[in-house]
């Protein structure tokens, strides 16, 4: 197992190297002058030339690449062309906020989706199955920004149950400030015993997380349902009935473990994908996340930021895929990780 993980991480390094070469090249080939952007619209040619030297853009491309990669491993991820801030610092402020949102959404998807999928499979073709299936198709196909707007209309405007957007209200952050330890507001406030902040942050998280959860929830329901139907039709589940194991244990203990593999795989991919694809949700809820950060960087052709985000997403994909493989192997003992290691 350890050997497998090490091997996969080493392979991941190659992937990263490849991805970095490609993104670096593409970022530089596009017809846009970072130096001109750096100094602003009213600069003269001399200032632009000076900026070019300052940013190291006068050096040959391979050398720039090497300098960049060196920086990547020593914590200097470059400076944003748009904001003139260190990229790494910006990234570390947006990443936890994105992760908090995605993890909350995933949690909702799993906690609600698995039981619903199972019930749907057990009561196949009943009204509850029909309802759940409609729900799941809806979840997968509903446009997230629209769902977000509707949730705001209902829960903020009509019912005033949840706040409109942002991670925490200004009052709370002023009255009950927390120290930034991990960047996860819920975690930080809990660790610091700041329950006023926790409550407010949690309330702010509900609507965006629900919006975020829609797609993975629909996905989980469908995946679990279809693999559960397969599993429940298998002989070994019927055999358990012959041994007098009650239905709920047959389904939730002995059946579910067989059915989780495909769901884990697709959830892993959804997670990695969500990292940057949530910018619509972030936009609707003014959520300071990675998606917004990425889209702004791309529009501004802020290449250090685009590169850093690409890098981060690649790392996430590598790690998530590794994690999924390990989880799937733990679920099914017939899968051997270290066969060819």
């Amino acid at each position: 197992m350890i050997r497998f993980i090490i091997k996969r991480l080493l392979l991941g390094l190659f992937v990263l190297a490849g991805v970095s070469v490609i993104t670096f090249t593409v970022a530089r080939v596009v017809p846009s002058d970072p130096a001109a952007r750096w100094v602003g619209p009213r600069a003269n040619a001399e200032q632009i030339a000076a900026a070019r030297i300052e940013l190291g853009l006068d050096k040959p491309l391979p050398q720039q690449y090497i300098t960049y990669m060196k920086g990547l491993f020593t914590g200097d991820w470059g400076t944003s062309i748009r904001t003139h801030q260190p990229v790494l610092r910006e990234l570390l402020s947006f990443l936890p906020s994105s992760l908090e949102l995605i993890l909350a959404g995933m949690l909702i998807a799993v906690v609600i989706g698995i039981p619903l999928g199972v019930i749907s499979a057990v009561k196949k073709d009943s009204w509850i199955d029909q309802l759940t299936r409609t729900f799941s198709v809806g979840g997968v196909s509903i446009p997230t920004f629209w769902l977000g707007l509707i949730l705001q209309l209902v829960f903020f405007r009509q019912l005033s149950l949840f706040p409109l957007g942002e991670r925490v209200s200004t009052n709370t952050s002023l009255l009950y400030p927390i120290d930034n330890w991990t960047g996860f507001y819920l975690l930080d406030s809990l660790l610091q015993g700041n329950f006023d902040f926790f409550k407010d942050a949690a309330l702010h998280l509900v609507l965006p997380a629900l919006t975020m959860a829609a797609y993975p929830l629909g996905l989980v329901i469908r995946m679990i349902r279809s693999s559960m139907i397969d599993v429940l039709g298998e002989e070994h589940i019927r055999v358990l009935k012959a041994y007098g194991i009650p239905a709920w244990r047959r389904v939730f203990v002995y059946g579910l473990k067989n059915a989780l593999g495909p769901t884990a795989t697709s959830l892993g991919l959804t997670f990695a994908y969500a990292l940057t694809s949530t910018f619509l949700i972030e936009a609707v809820f003014s959520w300071p996340g990675l998606g917004m950060y990425a889209s702004q960087a791309i529009l501004a052709n802020d290449y250090p930021v685009t590169m850093a985000i690409t890098f981060l997403v690649t790392v996430t994909y590598i790690l998530i895929n590794l994690l999924v493989d390990v989880v799937v192997a733990m679920l099914d003992p017939r899968i051997k990780l270290y066969q060819n290691a």
Binding site: E235, H236, V239, K257, L331, D332, P333
Partner: peptide, 14 residues
């Protein structure tokens, strides 16, 4: 109690 036909499929693989 009951014994089934195919021992390959009558035991839960996981």
């Amino acid at each position: 109690s009951m014994i089934f036909q195919d021992p390959m499929s009558s035991l839960n693989p996981v």
